[in-house]
Amino acid sequence: MEPEKILNISVDCVVFGYDINTKSLNVLLIKRFLEREEEVLVNDYVLTGYHVYQKETLDETATRVLKELTGLTDQYKKQFKAFGNPDRLTNEKDLIWIRNEGFNSRTITIAYYFLLKTDDVDLKNNKYQAKWFPVNDLPELGFDHEKIILEAYEDLKTKCLSEPIIFKLLPDKFTINEVQDLYQSILGIEIDNRNFRRKLIKKKYIIALDEKQVGVSKRPAQLYMFSLDLYEKMFKKNYLINI
Rank of each mutant, 00 (worst) to 15 (best):
K203C: 04
R197P: 03
R197N: 09
L209F: 10
K204F: 05
N193C: 05
R197L: 04
R198C: 07
G215S: 04
L223P: 05
Q213H: 05
R219W: 12
S217L: 15
R198S: 15
D210Y: 03
K199G: 09
K218L: 09
K202Q: 15
A221M: 11
K218M: 11
E211I: 04
E211K: 13
A208S: 13
K202L: 13
R219D: 09
I206T: 05
K204H: 14
P220G: 09
V214I: 14
N193F: 07
K203W: 03
R197F: 13
L209A: 07
L223A: 04
L209M: 10
K218W: 11
P220F: 07
F196N: 04
L209P: 06
V214R: 05
R198I: 08
K212F: 08
N195W: 08
I207K: 10
I201C: 03
P220Q: 14
D210I: 01
A208M: 13
R197A: 11
G215M: 07
F196I: 00
E211W: 00
A221Q: 10
A221L: 07
K199T: 07
N193I: 12
I201Q: 07
D210P: 01
Q213Y: 06
K199A: 10
F196E: 02
L200K: 08
P220R: 07
I201D: 02
K199M: 06
V214T: 14
V216C: 02
L200F: 06
K212C: 02
Y205G: 02
I206K: 01
K199E: 14
K218V: 13
A208L: 12
K203V: 00
K212Y: 12
Y205R: 01
R197V: 11
R219K: 15
Y224L: 03
E211Y: 06
R198P: 11
I201S: 08
A221R: 08
D210C: 00
P220K: 10
K204T: 14
I207D: 10
Q222Y: 03
I206H: 03
P220N: 12
I201K: 15
L209I: 05
A221D: 11
K204M: 11
I201P: 05
E211M: 06
K203Q: 14
K212V: 06
K202W: 10
K204E: 15
E211S: 08
G215N: 09
A221V: 02
R197W: 09
L209D: 12
L223I: 05
F196T: 00
L200V: 07
K212E: 08
A221F: 00
E211T: 04
V214M: 12
Y224A: 01
R197Q: 14
L209T: 09
V214W: 03
